[in-house]
């Protein structure tokens, strides 16, 4: 199995997509952080600041939670890990080398976990470096063990890993690369955003992967739309595990019996 996971990682790292994804991820995170830094503690003319100030201990966890925004990239890599096999018909060679197809799927999911962890590490490092620098410049102090920082870090890892697995499951189900990518992005950016943003819709949204990840990280970020309706952190974790198993099952069922012609 180790060999198969290594082979799956080689598939990803011998094409150029992964570092393009990493670059876009850095740009994306930098953009979010720039907004967060610019708006920190800035109050509208007659009201409370929308975001905590840089020297407020609440700002750093908020900034770190932005590292989970990289989930979209691990999802894309997961989708590509599966669909590029069909797009370029390399699935034929893959199944000739490993005819026990369940093992191929297991290896892809294993590789998805590693990709998720890898991107979580680089995303967190990048975010942490930028955010800590900003806090120090803003006159705040850093305590990485305080507040929700450890939980947030765990949440970022869980989210990025889960979305990689989600991408693999989605790719196995849809197989058409473009359709899977569009479907995945619409799902993560449109459907989950809407169902997760409005407290009234969060009765549904909290059960989705995005809502569950939010619960795990317990990002209680007042959007001005009312109090969030999220699962408890442990509930979020359980829902995420259930999704991971579901995606694995979907990937397996849609792949093991199909004729490759």
């Amino acid at each position: 199995m180790t060999n198969l996971i290594r082979a799956e990682l080689q598939k990803l790292f011998t094409t150029r997509l992964w570092w393009a994804m990493a670059l876009v991820m850095f740009a994306f995170t930098a953009f979010g952080l720039a907004f967060l830094i610019a708006q920190a503690g800035v109050a509208p003319a007659n009201g409370q600041p929308g975001l905590p100030a840089l020297d407020d201990p609440a700002w750093l966890p908020l900034a770190l939670s932005f590292a989970s925004g990289a989930n979209i990239f691990t999802m894309i890599l997961g989708i590509v890990l599966m669909t590029s096999e069909y797009r370029y018909q390399t699935i034929t060679g893959t199944f000739l080398t490993t005819p026990k197809r369940g093992r191929v799927i297991a290896a892809k999911l294993g590789a998805g976990v590693i990709v998720g962890v890898f991107f979580a590490v680089i995303s967190l490092l990048f975010t942490a470096v930028v955010a800590i620098t900003a806090v120090l410049i803003g006159g705040g102090s850093i305590d990485l063990t305080a507040g929700r920082v450890p939980q947030l870090t765990l949440g970022v890892f869980a989210t990025l890993v889960l979305y990689a697995l989600f991408g693999i499951g989605l790719g196995a189900l849809v197989r058409n690369q473009v359709a899977a990518l569009i479907g995945g992005i619409v799902w993560a950016y449109v459907i989950e955003s809407i169902l997760g943003a409005f407290p009234a819709l969060q009765t549904v949204g909290k059960w989705l992967p995005g809502g569950a990840a939010q619960a795990l990280m317990n990002i209680d970020f007042d959007t001005g739309l009312g109090e969030s309706n999220l699962l408890p952190a442990w509930g979020g974790a359980l829902v995420l595990v259930a999704y991971a198993l579901l995606f694995a099952l979907v990937a397996n069922l849609t792949t093991t019996r199909r004729d490759i012609t």
Binding site: K11, T15, Y88, Q89, G93, T97
Partner: peptide, 15 residues
């Protein structure tokens, strides 16, 4: 059935 962005050697290395 090859990924066009991969080198010949990498294709075989994966197998």
């Amino acid at each position: 059935s090859f990924h066009p962005g991969r080198t010949a050697r990498d294709h075989l290395r994966i197998m």
